[in-house]
Design a binder for these strands. Sequence first.
DNA 1: TCTGGTGTACTAGTTTTCTAGTACAAGTCA
DNA 2: TGACTTGTACTAGAAAACTAGTACACCAGA
Lengths: 140, 140
Amino acid sequence: MATAARNAADKNDPLPFAFRLDLKTGIPVYRQLIDQALAAIASAVLGPGDRLPTVRQVAVDLAINPNTVVRAYKELEIRGVLTTEQGTGTFISTQTVPVDELARQRRLEQFATDVAARAGAAGFSLAEVAAALTERRKPS
Amino acid sequence: MATAARNAADKNDPLPFAFRLDLKTGIPVYRQLIDQALAAIASAVLGPGDRLPTVRQVAVDLAINPNTVVRAYKELEIRGVLTTEQGTGTFISTQTVPVDELARQRRLEQFATDVAARAGAAGFSLAEVAAALTERRKPS
DNA sequence: TCTGGTGTACTAGTTTTCTAGTACAAGTCA
DNA sequence: TGACTTGTACTAGAAAACTAGTACACCAGA
């Protein structure tokens, strides 16, 4: 599995995925990386066992500090989305978790799409709904 | 209107509304004030023309700096929920906006309740849904 | 008019979040 | 085995967010 993944990630093959930054949005860099990785997984651009660009590669490509990349990868690893191997690299998790996570992400997207449509029909912005949902959690 | 509201807020009458702080949640103070004011309006504890505690009063009661109170009131004023009059005080807006805002807040609560139920049935936390909705906004 | 109470404005300090610098540890490959 | 590449760990600095200190401007009432 992991070996096959590494073969697929041979240095002669261009990586099918690359991060990009949009500094205009004011969204923290590490969060953009997380979001993009999740989006790539949800859209099947990245699959189980696929290799992500190395911490240093991303840092060089985006002109950011490696530790910022580490932060994103680490959070995704905590979520079980990625597995990182020191000395080797970072890979999309091949455990049952990410497959479930994939399907779950897709369902969540669907759900959000449904909510967005309903919100639009009811005259609420997504930010309002998100805030209302967030405020529901506070009393707990 | 405003005069009647001020009469109602005579110094001899205890104010029907007071802010409280919960420092354990880590939620910024000014945000707690905003949330509580909105909740009081939504639950009709506060109505159009009602007077809010003064900036200094709240600051003294909660042992915080007046400017933190100002920050909350200012945001609510920008939203059209409150009107502040220098030298006079701060009042729930009597324009058509707040009445609509009241009804709208209630509908938003209902909507959030509905979404929460659906989310629970679909196996998503409210935080996840809120985040998914928030992420839908970013590309725009 | 004067006094006291009100919000406003500005600067400054503190805390939290985000990012960077860099050395260390682990893995791979010739 | 040694060189190179990889992630990890730690400290430090920068930026953003939050809060405070305080003076000023305006209003209300005697």
